[in-house]
């Protein structure tokens, strides 16, 4: 299996996110050169770091961006039927969801936030 080259896509300067608090959900849309669009949410469940998840509840294929963040369990809950996903790794915490949500690695370099789109 050939090792895929890891490419980091720049999102924005970290200061752009200073207005967001822990527990907020930031929806972003990333359009790659190939024309493929990704709808992603950035969530913080502690003061420390951001996590990036697919903006898709795997139960009904609807968006997660209006979901509620549970800080203690670090999970995001889809408002429509109560499905919960772990923010850090996308795993299902509560039904009726079954499949985990895709997550994307993030890194901060020189005050700029990068996301890795190839999983």
């Amino acid at each position: 299996m050939t090792k895929q080259k890891v490419t980091w896509t720049e999102i924005a300067n970290v200061s752009e996110f200073s207005g967001f608090n822990t527990g907020d959900v930031v929806p972003i849309e990333v359009e790659q050169d190939t024309g493929i669009k990704h709808s992603i949410i950035l969530v913080k469940c502690s003061d420390k770091e951001w996590f990036a998840l697919d903006n898709l509840c795997t139960h009904d294929n609807g968006p997660l961006d209006d979901g509620e963040v549970h800080l203690k369990s670090c999970a995001i809950e889809c408002k429509r039927h109560g499905a919960q996903f772990n923010i850090k790794n996308g795993q299902v915490v509560r039904m009726p969801a079954i499949h985990p949500v895709d997550t994307y690695p993030l890194k901060i370099e020189n005050q700029i936030l990068y996301i890795q789109l190839q999983n």
Partner: peptide
């Protein structure tokens, strides 16, 4: 160069 849009509110 990918195009990024940050939506500060829920998508319309």
């Amino acid at each position: 160069m990918a195009k990024i849009t940050i939506q500060k509110k829920i998508k319309t």
